[in-house]
Design a protein around this nucleic acid. Structure first.
Lengths: 201, 201, 201, 201
DNA sequence: AATGAATGAGCTTTCATTCAT
DNA sequence: CATGAATGAAAGCTCATTCAT
């Protein structure tokens, strides 16, 4: 019946990977479909067997990126219970994820910017807002637990989680720009210390 | 003397302002030159009397935005001497600048993303990295002064200034996405308190 | 003997029938090969086992349509001898053929248009001209017989046959457009009366 | 203010004329926009300054063709009062219109076919049905007047007008196919005689 | 024999830029 | 100086056809 057995999911995955490379190199606004096709070693038409449009391909890639991030984070934090330690792990794992594959870091801010809704028309990537809400909720739950246990001061958990998310994005952004390096293994610890301990005496 | 020059500058200014509106509405990747021409009430050809290309127009606008930000900041911070107060003022002034005109906030992350250097080709806006270095230096000088005066703990000034810059960008990013609001007047103070005072007891 | 051959013909027939449905729905200029494949319940590749190209498939369908028409007409007119009666039967049979299956009427004018030779390139369906010549010859023979028998005025048989063929096509065209209805059973008789009897007193 | 004074209407007209030539040569289904651009001696982009799409260009041309026909007919029939004479003039004027410019005849059936509504989607040229209704009404008014004056038998005016319109289309169609010639100057008269006088004794 | 995944030629359409007026 | 009509390179996307299985 179906003479050519093709693992469509695998190929789709492969195209995603190629797309990520291209995004990293050209950004998500200047790339051409043919770039991805050539990188993936397939014809232009083949891309459209797997994605209905250029836009959808970008969206799909970003969706996968976020899913990967979530999965990566979950696998690293599930066993930790101490809130301060959990927060430290969140920070270092966050950096690790982007240190692991440079492509991800290069794409990061295109992803961010693509989630900004402009007054005319939808944002390119609608999933970002939702994803962010989830991240902040998760961080807030850590803070709340810390406050409950008396490890943390009675801070506003929502504000603190927003601050932490913001802080990490900013650092990664500096790294993407080449202004700051996230290579140092000691960075997460230092960062955590200052964030948790504050600056004033 | 030469009223023509004054006129030219004025018109250039007006085109910039129109461009900002258009960027805010459509983003810097989807706008058309005709959009700006129509918003500015001039012909398409006229734009090219003032800017050599579309790309240069975007660059110019971003340059102006950063200059405005610097000027705004300088005018607000010049009289303050206390490091902690200075830092608090930096944070609240930063928010004020973007609260004042929503257009600026909508554009901000396009500006950021446009500064990311992709491996293939120059970044759209080359001035960003340099501008960032200046901001961080300025913040670092505040931290150093605070440490010298004994108001701050002996923290790593470069790290802390990077963190603060990152924190502010991140908050603004959330605001642009619609996830967080920066409207509250109390926000800067709360934020400063946590940043300066830390979280753990 | 050779059951395979019978199967092949049957399948070819089925593909034709499916094609007719698709033509009726989308017209012969907008349909896709996949439309026919899906309607026929076969794979795209299979179509090419039976037809060498899209163009040939269209041609084949039109050929069949004309053959069906001829056969239908012959079976209805063979027993009639009176020229006026024969002409009336030709008219009503012509309508019946298209009334029977709406698909045919929907396709008819695509068929006609596809037979028009444009100065650049062959017409899509080359068989049409020849088919028309046959129809007109047949009608002319009826007229001539009518004139010979003294039933008809001594009219120009070629002109009259051309007129009759034209008249029928036109009516069918109006019907296809939805401007005129051919549903009325009385229509053929009325039409024949006027055509045979004229208008002036 | 407007330094380049361009007669947009004139240019639009010129593009139409070029389009008609191209349609006549390639048909309305196989032509490319570049064909028209080259024939008109303009760039591809220029076409889109005058027509929003390929489809609209076709529609526009057909609209003009019908308008031309109406104007042509009106100018020829306005002075005639005798119904039989009016009908004869209608027939001969109809032929004249297409004899005058061969392009029109070549396009005619594409125009007709484009007016046929297929069950899936709109017909390419929506204006045809309406135009036809107008023609038939006009012809019916002639017939009615003839009946009123007693020149014609008490025939069904709507049927007769439909028949006449059908007859003319059919003849023109045969001419387009190359099966019949409409070159003979005597044709209109002969045709009118038979149509008005009938066939049977 | 039958299939449908893969392909790429070829199309329409957009829009930054130019330049005659 | 200002303009906007004209342009054509360039890109997304379609779909008839092929061919490995």
């Amino acid at each position: 019946m179906s003479p050519k057995i093709i693992d469509k999911d695998k190929k789709r995955e492969e195209i995603f990977r190629s797309a990520m490379k291209v995004f990293a190199q050209k950004g998500i606004h200047d790339f051409k479909m043919i770039d991805i096709a050539e990188t993936a070693g397939v014809g232009k038409g083949t891309l459209y067997e797997y994605f209905s449009s250029k836009e959808q391909l970008v969206e799909g890639c970003f969706g996968i990126l976020l899913e990967d991030f979530d999965a990566h984070m979950k696998s690293r934090l599930s066993d930790i219970v101490d809130p301060a330690e959990k927060m430290k792990q969140y920070i270092s794992t966050s950096f690790d994820f982007f240190r692991l594959e440079k492509d991800r870091l290069d794409i990061l801010f295109d992803l961010y910017a693509s989630g900004i809704p402009h007054s005319g028309g939808r944002p390119l990537f609608e999933g970002l807002t939702e994803s962010y809400r989830r991240v902040k909720e998760y961080l807030a739950s850590i803070v709340k637990e810390g406050v409950r246990q008396g490890v943390f001061r009675p801070v506003d958990a929502n504000l603190v989680s927003a601050m932490l998310a913001a802080l990490l994005d900013g650092i990664l952004f500096h790294a993407a720009m080449g202004v700051t390096s996230i290579e140092s293994e000691a960075l997460p610890k230092k960062l955590t210390d200052i964030f948790l301990g504050g600056i004033v005496k």
